[in-house]
């Protein structure tokens, strides 16, 4: 569709994007603590992966890429899906493409977009829809619930579709320019810088660990958590993340890491170490 040496069969079609749109609706169905919306994201990317890669090993590598952590406001997840689709398409056609930049871009976009999307959809649109719906429903009118669903979902589905279109269109035009000018290594580096800063900021935002208990008595009593916060805010979430990162680097099986984390949570709660 866009690159010059494209063989038609491997270019993303409108039907593929339609499939991505429909599949993106399931984004939150298999939400989990470990990688959150990752299966929904991967599920949405599969029509693209099947389209652009012929060889089984390429398909597997791409699928594994999209089985990594993902979380954003589901309504605008399609913007990132569109960009990922464009990047996978480039990756399949350009041997010099650095595939790790695909996940760097995802990481860089997911949390900032969640910030915008959450306040737009949860904070604004949902509140307007609820206000309109409840006032009618309180009188026993079925128009209330209907209005609630319509006011929220008509903009939602329209925005979801256009985000996919924009994401893919922006991704392809941007990438073809970058490829022509040979800036790909720089883009990879820039995406890693941005992605890692966002991932670093996810630690205080997404990981929560706090301890119970206090030292001293009476007015001089200080909670242990406030002492730790005095050393460094979000110190415990950082330590937990670094600890888990070490385990991941040492190829400890993910199932074991999960069991360790759950055991620490439950045993710690038994001894009253953690505050809920």
């Amino acid at each position: 569709m866009t690159t010059s040496n494209a063989s038609g069969a491997h270019s993303i079609t409108k039907q593929d994007l339609n499939k991505v749109f429909l599949r993106s609706l399931t984004m939150e169905y298999s939400w989990n603590y470990e990688r959150q919306q990752h299966m929904g994201y991967c599920f949405s990317m599969l029509p693209i992966i099947r389209r652009v890669y012929d060889k089984k090993e390429d398909q597997i590598a791409a699928t594994q890429r999209h089985m990594e952590f993902f979380n954003t406001t589901p309504y605008i997840s399609t913007l990132i899906l569109g960009i990922s689709a464009a990047m996978e398409e480039s990756n399949s056609k350009d041997a010099d493409f650095d595939a790790s930049s695909i996940n760097s871009v995802k990481a860089a976009l997911m949390s900032p977009l969640a910030g915008i999307g959450d306040s737009l959809f949860w904070g604004t649109l949902r509140v307007i829809a609820t206000g309109l719906g409840v006032s009618l429903a309180m009188e026993g009118s079925i128009l209330g619930p209907l209005l609630f669903l319509i006011v929220f979902n008509v903009p939602h589905y329209i925005i979801r579709w256009f985000c996919l279109k924009w994401g893919y269109g922006f991704g392809t035009s941007f990438l073809s320019k970058i490829e022509e000018s040979g800036l790909m290594p720089k883009l990879t580096m820039g995406a890693a810088v941005l992605g890692l800063m966002v991932i670093g900021a996810m630690v205080p935002n997404l990981v929560s660990v706090s301890v119970a208990g206090s030292l001293g008595t009476g007015d001089s009593a200080q909670t242990i958590q406030s002492i730790i916060d005095g050393i460094m805010p979000s110190l415990l979430p950082l330590l937990v993340t670094l600890g888990v990162f070490e385990l991941v680097q040492h190829k400890v099986r993910i199932a074991w890491i999960l069991i360790i984390l759950m055991a620490v949570g439950i045993v710690g709660s038994f001894f009253g170490i953690f505050a809920v």
Binding site: Y33, E34, F69, A107, M202, V203, V240, L258
Partner: peptide, 11 residues
């Protein structure tokens, strides 16, 4: 509260 640390580490 702990487990997102695993997803972040993997990413």
């Amino acid at each position: 509260g702990f487990i997102p640390a695993l997803g972040i580490s993997l990413l």
